[in-house]
Amino acid sequence: MTVRSYGFGAIALEAAVQVPATFEYRRASSVEDALALLERFGEEARVIAGGHSLLPMMKLRLARPEFLVDINDLHELDYLRLEGGELLIGALTRHRTLLESELVGRLFPIFHDAERVIADPPVRNRGTIGGSLCQADPAEDLSAVCTAVRAVAVILGPGGRRSVPMQEFYRGPYETAVGAGELLVEIRVPVRPNAGSAYRKVERKTGDWAVAAAGGALSLADDGRIGWAGIGLAAVSTSLAGYRRVEEALVGREPTDELFTEAGRIAAEDCDPLSDLRGTEEYKRHLAGELTHRALTLAAERARAAGGTGGKDA
């Protein structure tokens, strides 16, 4: 049976079919090997990392790759390090590693805020940041986080290596800048002085996808005003880059509660949620505004704490 709609009914019907369709499995032994396998099998090949988005989709026949290239042996893509003023995150870094990293928590608490509420411990043991960003689910948390902190995705392919800012990486639901034959290898996050970041999410139950979520990052200038701001929302739009008006409203202003309320109001106006099982459009708009307000308030507190201790990072 084929799925004719992505609606809940179709998924419930398909739930009887719980084994993926047939495919050929190859385990890549190096990044070069993975690229060679992807090139050889072309459009019909898919990378599998944690498999916690892809395998459920394959069981439901929402994805039907003919070849799976398993990249789990590529330990060279599983790393976190600070280099040249950037936090470098290998694409195969698991959710759990991000959550347990002291470095990540210190530089970008927004990642820890999000990771605490992404799925559950067994899922976090398998799922990777690369798989999360490449899945590009509109409700996916790390895409919103990476947008807020202005991360850059490094993509490797037959044509070489290129860097794509998060806003261009995410092309819409389930679509990214990663082309056939290409591999996301690294996520780079610029570290800013006197900065703070935070993520706030409302979900129906532990481990569930967001009803709505908001990430905010900002840095404070010497005079205490906001020098730079980045916003990313999850589950309330099919675009990630739609919050420039919010960012512009913040820069150059004092980080006050009124300002963050205003920022939330603009975010609620500029998002584009759909009514579904998780809530009505109106409710999600309300959440988008309130969560933007809360994320920015906490981000500003963290930025002040970072500045107050003379630290260059937060």
């Binding site: 499995y25 599998i48 498999g51 398993d70 759990r96 411990p121 067994p122 043991n125």
Partner: peptide
């Protein structure tokens, strides 16, 4: 470490 074995291929 705990994983959900319905979402791991035997091959993996």
């Amino acid at each position: 470490e705990p994983v959900k074995s319905c979402t791991v291929l035997a091959a993996m």
